[in-house]
């Protein structure tokens, strides 16, 4: 079942097209990263999916309902990029306040447990007004967890955290992902996405630029100098699920599994290829992201 499904989703602000025809699906239980430069439409996408703004075109569904529907809001948690809280409340009171808004009684909100989870146990009774940016960021994630939501929108959760805090936040998100929650992680930190997400959606200028399966993206790639390769050999490589680019001399392959290199070499030779060099390489998400942003990218699967 899809936790999130959009079809040609679009949003204009005046003459500016912030989002253009975004079609994507996020399955229940998936942890998906949302990547893109500033102005790519990431925040607009999240706002549309939360029902905070309305689309000017297309449709969006969260758990099969319109975003912002009360039934959806009961199942969704949201951690904003720049969190602000009522400064006179303590961390515990803040969680109870948001719990109350979610229809929970104070006793039903496991404030201490959630604060322990995000590393704020010691600050449970401190007024939020005195929190550092990092502590506020942790509290933002904490309040998103109130009510045990099935779907989490995390907008730059590592923003403002020190290196150790980032590692802890990644670990927390990974832990949340293992509990079967669906997570849409919007971040500029590629390492965060690489570490915790199973799939990444790349946006560029309001459009879907690429959807990458991270196991695929992080798989082996090959750059080879090969001549005289017959088209049938290229088709055979594609049939193995590899991404193939060949200009008559340079062959680039992506998506190899570990140990598949000898089979590829055998196929190239069988296809008439004369191999002058064969260099395996790892394709990092950062490389892939830069490629996509440079050329406009391609849509692999969604």
């Amino acid at each position: 079942m899809d936790a999130i499904a959009t079809e040609s989703l679009a949003r204009k602000f005046g003459e500016v097209e912030a989002l253009r025809g975004l079609t994507l699906n996020v399955k229940a239980g998936e942890c998906v990263g949302l990547l893109g430069p500033n102005g790519a439409g990431k925040t607009t996408t999240i706002k549309l999916l939360l029902g905070l703004i309305r689309p000017t075109g297309g449709t969006a569904e969260v758990f099969g309902c319109a975003p912002g529907h009360p039934n959806v809001r009961r199942r969704v948690g949201y951690s904003p990029e720049t969190p602000h809280f009522y400064p006179f409340l303590s961390a515990r009171e803040t969680l109870r306040f948001y719990g109350k808004l979610s229809g929970l009684k104070p006793a039903q909100v496991d404030a201490d447990g959630i604060l322990r989870q995000v590393g704020l146990s010691d600050a449970a009774d401190k007024q939020v007004g005195g929190f550092s940016k990092g502590m506020a960021q942790r509290l933002a994630v904490a309040q998103a967890l109130v009510g045990d939501p099935e779907l989490l929108f995390l907008d730059e959760p590592s923003s403002g955290l020190d290196p150790l805090g980032r590692v802890e936040m990644r670990s927390l998100i990974r832990q949340l992902a293992t509990t079967g929650r669906t997570i849409l992680l919007n971040t500029h930190i590629i390492a965060d996405v690489e570490t915790v997400a199973s799939r990444v959606i790349m946006l560029k200028a309001g459009q879907l630029a690429a959807v990458e399966d991270l196991t695929h993206t992080q798989a082996l790639g090959v750059t080879a100098q090969v001549t005289d390769l017959k088209p049938a050999a290229l088709d055979a490589l594609r049939a193995w699920g590899l991404t193939v680019a060949y200009d008559g001399e340079q062959l680039t392959l992506a998506g190899l599994q570990d140990g598949q290199e000898p089979d590829v070499v055998a196929r190239l030779v069988a296809g008439g290829g004369r191999i002058y060099s064969f260099t395996p390489r790892r394709v990092s998400l950062e490389q892939r992201f830069l490629e996509v942003m440079a050329v406009g990218g391609e849509h692999h699967d969604c």
Partner: peptide, 14 residues
């Protein structure tokens, strides 16, 4: 301005 309204409106309260 400080977007605290977001955290209110995403809750199941009208």
């Amino acid at each position: 301005e400080r977007k605290t309204i977001h955290l209110l409106l995403v809750r199941p309260v009208s």
